[in-house]
């Protein structure tokens, strides 16, 4: 069985986009899309954790009975995230400085559990790893896009660089309502385009 990475990537970014199509992991999405840089940091952390957790869940899929699969997944994921947290803190301090604040948020990220349940529990190891990578990339791109939009609307900047021709501050967009408004508008736009196509 060969994997077409390009098709998989298309699936992760477009047809099964975790944020815009599956609408999973909303808590960290709303919390970390305040700026493009934050969004990217969260995204990169999720790619790493999702890939590895998919791999572990897939390896254990024949051992885990169906009835207790959810608690088993949660034990595996929580353990895994904590192990990663401790290892990064101990051995790669600069990385921990940059991404450490996102790691507790990953534990509450439904995408990790969602992909374990929907994909890794039913598929062999290699495709599960690929699924983790493409879903992580889809998550990162969408989150960074939301982050860039909110950063631009709130402060006229993207990745900390001033883009807008004038200086302004629109606090609402950094606050929680700004997250809901931006996400809502983007989802509406995507649905509009899709309805038009079909």
């Amino acid at each position: 069985m060969s994997i077409n990475f390009k098709n998989e990537l298309y699936r992760g970014i477009v047809t099964e986009n975790p944020i815009f199509r599956i609408v999973l992991g909303m808590c960290p999405t709303l919390a970390t899309s305040t700026s493009a840089m934050n969004a990217l940091g969260m995204g990169v952390s999720v790619i790493a954790v999702l890939t590895c957790s998919n791999m572990v869940i897939s390896m254990l899929r024949n051992v885990i009975p169906d009835k207790v699969r959810i608690p088993a997944f949660i034990v595996v994921i929580a353990t895994f995230v904590t192990v990663v947290d401790l290892l990064i803190a101990a051995f790669i301090p600069p990385l921990y400085e940059a991404l450490g604040i996102f790691i507790p948020l990953i534990v509450v990220n439904c995408i990790i559990l969602g992909r374990a349940e929907a994909y890794a529990a039913k598929n062999p190891v290699l495709p599960s790893i690929v699924d983790g990578i493409v879903m992580g990339i889809g998550f990162t791109l969408s989150l960074t896009m939301l982050g860039a939009m909110r950063e631009f609307l709130s402060a006229g900047m993207i990745f900390g660089y001033a883009i807008a021709p004038f200086k302004h501050q629109f606090i609402l967009m950094i606050l929680a309502p700004g997250a809901f408004i931006t996400l809502g508008l983007v989802l509406a736009g995507i649905n509009f385009i899709q309805n038009k196509e079909s």
Partner: peptide, 9 residues
């Protein structure tokens, strides 16, 4: 600290 990235951080 463990404040929210982008706000408290």
């Amino acid at each position: 600290h463990k404040e929210t990235p982008g706000l408290g951080s």
